[in-house]
Computed example of a mutant assay.
Amino acid sequence: MRPAELPARPGQAAEEPVAGDETSGLHHEVVELARALPGPLRRLTVRSGDRAVEVEWAADAVPAAAAPAPVPGGLQAVAAPSGPAAVPEPAGEEPEVPEGTIAVRAPLVGTFYAAPSPGAEPFVRVGDEVEAGQTLGIVEAMKLMNPIVADAAGAVAEIRVGDAESVEYDQVLVLLRPSGGPR
C-alpha cells in the first residue's frame, strides 16, 4: 500500500502532506536519490536521525568513474567500499541449486538465526528429516522474528548460511532433498 492510498487521519487532508512534515520530505528525497544513482542497487539504508543514507551497489554494477549524485535537502550518499577492505562477494551471482534438491529461500532481508535463542539447539542440522511446514530457522527483520519453514517434506541436504548471518531477499538458506529422492 502506498502512502497516498492510506486513509486520512481525522483533521488531515487525504491528498496533501502536512506542511513541514519531515517524513514526507525525506521520502521524496530518498525516491529522488534512488532514481539518480547509477546502476542497480543492492541495498539502500536511510536513517532519519542526522539524515544519513548508505548505498550499496550490486557487484560489478557501478562503473569505476561513477560517483553518487548530489541530492537536495542535504542527504549524503555513501557508496559501499570497493577496494581490498570490501567484504568479498561470491564469484557467481548465486550458487547453483543442485538438481534433485529444493531451495528454501529468504523471504526478506534480515539476520538468519539457526536456533530459537542463543545457546539453544538449532532447529535443524544437515541430515535431519523435516516435514512440510516445519521451522528450519528464523530471519529477524526490524525486531520481528519471521519463521523459515520447509515447503515440502525431505532431508536437510545443506544449510548455506551461518547463525546470526545477514541474508538478502531470495538468498538460498537451506537445501532439502525431497522424501523418496536419491541420497
Rank of each mutant, 00 (worst) to 15 (best):
P81E: 02
R2V: 01
E54P: 03
P182T: 15
R125M: 09
V71L: 14
V97T: 15
E32N: 03
E121L: 14
R51L: 14
P70H: 08
E32P: 03
V31R: 12
E96H: 08
G180L: 07
S48V: 11
V53N: 01
G181C: 04
A164R: 15
A85H: 13
G92V: 08
H28Y: 02
G25K: 08
R51V: 01
F123D: 13
G180E: 02
E129Y: 00
V174L: 13
A103P: 08
A115C: 05
M1D: 04
G181D: 12
E96N: 00
G162A: 15
V161D: 08
I102T: 15
A150D: 01
A36H: 02
L26K: 06
F112S: 05
M142V: 07
A85V: 11
P116H: 08
V109E: 09
V30F: 03
L41K: 00
G162V: 08
G73Q: 12
R160M: 14
A120S: 14
V18M: 05
A155D: 09
A13W: 02
I148A: 07
G20T: 07
G119S: 07
E22R: 14
V167D: 00
S48D: 13
S166D: 13
L6E: 01
H27T: 06
L44G: 00
A64H: 01
S179N: 09
D21R: 05
A65M: 09
A152K: 14
V139H: 02
T23E: 13
R183A: 14
A69E: 13
A86R: 15
L136W: 12
M145C: 07
E121T: 15
E56S: 15
S48P: 08
L175W: 11
Q12Y: 12
R183H: 11
A19M: 06
V161R: 10
A115V: 02
A141W: 05
V139N: 09
Q76W: 03
V104R: 12
Q76P: 01
A79F: 12
A106D: 04
G74L: 03
G92Q: 07
I148C: 04
A157W: 10
G25V: 11
E29R: 15
L173C: 11
E94P: 02
E158Y: 11
A8P: 06
V174R: 09
V46T: 01
E168L: 06
G110C: 11
G39H: 07
G181L: 02
T45C: 03
H28F: 05
E99S: 10
R9F: 12
A64R: 13
E158R: 14
A19D: 15
V71R: 07
